[in-house]
Nucleic acid binder design. Structure first.
Length: 284
DNA sequence: GACCAGGTATTGC
DNA sequence: GCAATACATGGT
């Protein structure tokens, strides 16, 4: 619980002590986000909500640098999902399957981030039939070309708004090298900016209606929709099935439905995805 | 040069 | 409905 978080403030830094089920590299390198860079073995720098943050982990303590109490309370506390008790969530997942337990034991420090819905949607449109290093590169190029320079930062840029992107042509997007996905980005940007699709209203929809709404965008299918709902709307029941999850299901959960994982299926999915990617020999 | 990467749209049956 | 194929780009 956040009420139990112990935090201390020194100028421009926030220290959180004795936090469990939190591992910076497991959380930032598990494929859910694309705008964080590893600075050293225990520290990262990244951009979200138009702010630059440096963050470092020392055992069960985390230090947020280049920030303040206001941004911590308004942005980062929720962004890193520090208010959720993952040990409590694990209790409901722990008896489902031995392979899920094996995955959890490998990466119990994963947190599902609360990312911005538009950035998440756009990022996972770019992710299709693509690999993570190149996804990061495309997004970085897009922000640098079309986002706003973040004040007092060293060449850091915000994620461009739908409104800005909707004015562009496929040709304008060619420098970011996103290939056939350019028309999908533009369709998403225009449908969001002209209110044909209202991201705010998706928050109150059933998971089914939310997916159907997102799939009205060209280039958004079940996988991209589920990723958007999990990482951008914190719908923990969402269960994106990509090539890795297909292999995992075929190897260990044959004939089983994603319903097996219940209301925290998305978190289960993240343990399974990360563990399997890091230990590909576990799959057929 | 073929194959793959956190898929989807299109086509053909 | 379901299976096969094209799709931009860059890395093995």
């Amino acid at each position: 619980m956040f009420s139990k978080l112990i935090f201390k403030q020194i100028p421009d830094e926030i220290l959180i002590e004795n936090i469990n089920n939190f591992d910076l590299s497991q959380t930032l390198d598990c494929g859910q986000c694309f705008r964080w860079t590893k600075i050293s073995d225990n520290s990262y720098q990244g951009i979200a909500y138009g702010k630059v943050l440096s963050i470092q982990q020392e055992k069960n303590n985390i230090i947020l640098k280049n920030t303040n109490k206001e941004d911590f309370n308004n942005i980062w506390k929720n962004y890193f999902d520090l208010i959720t008790d993952y040990s409590e969530i694990w209790k409901t997942l722990s008896n489902i399957h031995p392979f899920l337990s094996e995955a959890y034991n490998y990466c119990p420090g994963i947190r599902i981030l609360n990312q911005e819905p538009w950035e998440t949607l756009c990022s996972f449109i770019i992710s299709q039939n693509n690999n993570i290093p190149r996804i990061k590169k495309i997004i970085s190029n897009m922000c640098e070309l079309f986002g706003d320079k973040i004040p007092n930062s060293e060449n850091c840029f915000s994620f461009p708004s739908p409104k800005i992107l909707a004015k562009l042509s496929e040709n304008d997007l060619s420098p970011i090298k996103c290939g056939f996905r350019a028309k999908y980005i533009l369709d998403a940007a225009s449908k969001i900016s002209n209110q044909e699709i209202n991201l705010e209203s998706i928050k109150n929809m059933s998971i089914y209606d939310a997916e159907e709404t997102l799939k009205k965008i060209k280039g958004v299918g079940p996988k991209v929709a589920q990723c958007t709902l999990l990482y951008g709307f914190h719908r923990l029941e969402a269960f994106p099935i990509d090539v890795w999850l297909k292999k995992i299901m075929a190897t260990y959960f044959q004939g089983k439905s994603p319903d097996l994982f219940g209301k925290y299926a998305g978190i289960a999915q993240q343990y399974l995805y990360h563990y399997s990617r890091m230990n590909a020999d576990k799959l057929f």
